[in-house]
Structures are given as structure tokens and as C-alpha cells.
Amino acid sequence: MLRAMTRPERDRPLTADRRPGRGAASRDSGRFERLSYADVSDGWDIPEDLPPLRTEVAEERPRSIITYNRSPDLPFDRSINPYRGCEHGCIYCFARPSHAYLGLSPGLDFETRLVARPQAPQVLARELRARRYQPAPLAIGTNTDPYQPVERDRGIMRACLDVLRDFRHPVAIVTKGTLVERDIDVLSEMAALGLARVGISVTTLDRDLARRMEPRVPSPARRLATIRRLSEAGIPVRLMVSPVVPALTDPELEHILAAGAEAGACAASWIMLRLPLEVAPLWRDWLAEHYPDRAGRIMARLREMHDGADYSARWHHRMRGEGAYAALIAQRFDLAARRLGLDHAQPPLRCDLFRPPPQPGDQLALF
């Protein structure tokens, strides 16, 4: 159940000065709403002193926390998400459409109206303790970032990580948040046993571009420093050049890989920009506002890779597209990664150490 969350006042204009540090420019309704809503001008030019949009956090009590998938192009079959929505506000985030399931906008609602799941650690422990449970690497951060700003006060991710350590359960984390450094003590302990690794996403080295495209994410230089700190603590780090944006960030591909290798990353990967469902119009609006001179070229490149559409969700196609441009990016990445020593596959995480910790009242083993 979700606790009551105040609904934005739809009769108030959504001007640019009301959304500082936000990625999306609109809060249009999602695809499941019976009635659609959108912010439009009424034609009156009357100045109003309105407050900026603030982040709201509701709470959910999940019945289950582990989500299973059968996607043939994903390297994991299970994941957890301590939060719904993400305050980082990355305009390109492919997880934005998931907010429509809550009756909220994939636009500004996704980054301003979050849902925390404070009981997630307890539910996770219960599911891991089930007799039929078979361990396999658990992914965290594949939908919304577990180390987004709200985690600093809530600590849900930290508590989930404590559970995984106690169960000796393998985990692979993906994040842009430097708050992951807070958990180096647990991650280094798990990494020493072959139970943990981290992926850090670096989309661009251009501070100004990053601020526009990922408004509440730590700067690129700060993320590279996080790679260094994790690596020095013995935690395997994969540099994720994702998403690659045609005609905007693709010229930086080799420079990003070189910076990641210098910071201590031991592997690298890349994904092309994806624009599923409501993300496509949000992205086009963002381009029109920030890079109108490049918008046509960027969208033309994307459509070349998806049979003329903004995006195609076909298995084994959606992550990188196809065609001459996609092949060129793949070749550039492979050559640079090989030269920098980032082309090695990471060793599999261990599942043989899985062991539910004893509970009060459990009978102790004799041997």
C-alpha cells in the first residue's frame, strides 16, 4: 500500500523556473490513464511567484521484493529495487515508463514523486530463506538507482546489502551515485569472497552536458573518483559507457574508456540510447530545448538503427540497434577496450557460499 501522496496542483503553470535541476520538462499523464492531462498555457501572461517543484517520497510495503525476468539478452534473471522513481532525473532513463503503472507521469513525476520500500530488507531475507530458493547473482540498480539522494536518509540499500552479506549471496550493482562509497566496508568484504561487483555509468566527460542530461547525478569527475576508491578497496568495477548518444556523446567514447581505465576499472561495456514508450517524446522535447541544432541529426541516427522508428524493443536488438552506425560504434569500442585492457570478461560471482544465517530458536548443527 502507498501512503497518501499529495497531487501536484494542475492549475498552476509549469514554467522553467519551477523545475531547476530536473531533467524532464513536462508531467504529462502516462499511457494507462483513462483521462490524459498535460500542462498548457492558457494565454494569460500574469506573473506568479510559484515555488519550485519539490521531491515527495511515499512509502510502499511490498509483498515480495525479488523480481524475476526471462529476457534472453540480459545477463541476470533476478533483481530488486529499493525505490520506485529516481531523483537523478536522467532524461534518457529507460525506466521512466514504469512510473505509468503507478498512475504517475513518466516525466517530472518520475523524478519528483518517489516511492521508498523501507521493509525491503526484511522481505528480501524472508524470500532468501525460502526452502525452494536457489541462489544466483542478484542485480540492483538495473531499473532505478539504489544510491540516489534519498538513500542518504533512508538507508534501505545499505540494509539490503547487509542481508545479502549475511546470506553470502552474490550481488551485482549498477549506479551513478557516489554514495556507494559509504558501503565500501560491506562491498569489499563480499568482493574478497567473490560475491560482489559494481558497475559505474559514465555517459560523458563534459560537465555542462552531464548537468543538462543527468541534472542530479554526481559530476563525471566525481564518478571516476568513485571508480578509483572502489578499485583500491578490492571491489571489481565495470565502466559502463551508457547510453551512447549519437552525434552528442559518441565522439567521447575512447576518452571515457581511457579515463575509466586510468581510474582502475577492470572491464567495460556500452549500450546505445534507448527510447521506449514515453521516453521518446520526453527526449525529443529535451533536445528541442537544449540542442535544437543537433536534434535532427541525433534522431536520424537513432532511426537508422531501428528501421525508421525512434526505438525497437526486439530481443538482442534493443540494446545496441543495428546497421552501419551501430557497427561502427561497436568496432570503436572493441578496439579501445582491447588497447586499454578492458575487454576481459569478469569472473562469475560465486553461488556456492550461499548460507542462510541461523535465526533465534534454530536447532544448532552437531557437526
Rank of each mutant, 00 (worst) to 15 (best):
D293L: 12
E322Q: 13
R96H: 08
L195F: 09
R339G: 02
E87I: 01
L124I: 11
P62C: 03
S26Y: 05
R152E: 15
H169A: 14
N143L: 11
E289R: 13
E48N: 00
R238W: 08
A337L: 13
V57Y: 04
G177T: 08
R355P: 00
D362N: 07
V237I: 07
L335D: 08
S98A: 10
M272R: 12
E278I: 06
A313L: 02
C160P: 05
D307I: 01
N81S: 11
E87N: 04
V245W: 13
A172Y: 03
T142L: 02
S29C: 06
E278R: 09
Y101S: 01
L287P: 11
L179F: 06
A192F: 04
I80R: 02
R7N: 13
A295P: 04
A295C: 03
I227W: 01
H317C: 01
L14Y: 09
A336M: 01
D293P: 00
P62E: 05
G21Y: 08
H255G: 02
E322F: 00
A345P: 04
D250F: 15
A268R: 03
G141I: 03
G260R: 04
V245C: 07
R54C: 04
Q148N: 05
I140L: 12
L282M: 14
E254D: 14
D11M: 12
R229M: 07
V245G: 06
R314V: 07
Q134E: 09
I227D: 01
R61W: 00
D42Y: 06
E278S: 15
E9M: 09
T142M: 06
C86N: 13
S36K: 07
P97S: 05
G341M: 12
I200E: 04
R274K: 15
P360D: 13
H88W: 08
P348D: 10
L209T: 10
E322A: 14
P47Y: 07
L164T: 09
V115Q: 15
Q363H: 04
V163C: 05
D45C: 05
A38D: 14
P170D: 09
P52S: 06
S26M: 05
L14W: 05
W283S: 02
N81E: 09
G308L: 14
A120W: 01
D352E: 14
